[in-house]
């Protein structure tokens, strides 16, 4: 019989590998590529075939959320530039587009905090369309954990 491998020792091994940098370059590259794809797919319904450039947009989501029904998300821009519009997309929701925000002359900054209802763990994408027509985007992953007790009818 082989020795049982428990989850803890696997996690510890994974952490050690990551810390040693053994996996990081390859993982980071793969992640960038897949994030670009995720962003392109998520934003096509809004921006069509316009190229999506990574950057300029700030997106703050919790790494882990205790409940998917209300996850606080903030978007903003790197600089003072005002985009024509910003969108947020919950890529794994049945209808992914969450909100489209158009800022008017009285907005001090292109900055909004709101709360999303997320169907499960997923990638959130935020994008900004600038006055020159370029589209910038960024993404972040959020893990939804489940509660301790099964609740009937919630």
């Amino acid at each position: 019989m082989t020795a049982p491998v428990d989850r803890r020792s696997l996690l510890a091994a994974a952490a050690a590998l990551t810390a040693a940098g053994a996996l990081s370059p390859a993982v980071a590259l793969a992640q960038t590529a897949s994030n670009a794809t995720v962003m392109a797919v998520a934003l096509r319904p809004v921006f069509g075939d316009k190229p999506i450039k990574p950057g300029k947009v700030q997106l703050k989501v919790p790494v882990v959320a205790e409940n998917g029904s209300s996850v606080q998300v903030s978007v903003g821009m790197d600089g003072p530039e005002m985009p024509k519009r910003m969108v947020m997309v919950a890529t794994a929701n049945p209808q992914p587009l969450a909100t489209e925000i158009r800022f008017g002359p009285r907005a001090a900054r292109a900055e909004v905090t709101t709360r999303l209802r997320l169907a499960r763990s997923q990638t959130i994408v935020a994008a900004a369309e600038m006055p020159d027509g370029t589209v910038w985007a960024t993404s972040a992953d959020v893990t939804i954990t489940s509660g301790a007790c099964i609740e009937l009818g919630e």
């Binding site: 929701n93 909100t99 489209e100 925000i101 008017g104 009285r106 001090a108 905090t113 999303l116 209802r117």
Partner: peptide
């Protein structure tokens, strides 16, 4: 004058909340 104007879709949570800068 408009500060912001948003379309909300189904991923917006119950009792929707927004904060922003004016």
């Amino acid at each position: 004058e408009i500060v912001l104007d948003c379309d909300w879709h189904t991923p917006i949570s119950a009792n929707p909340y927004m904060s922003f800068a004016v």
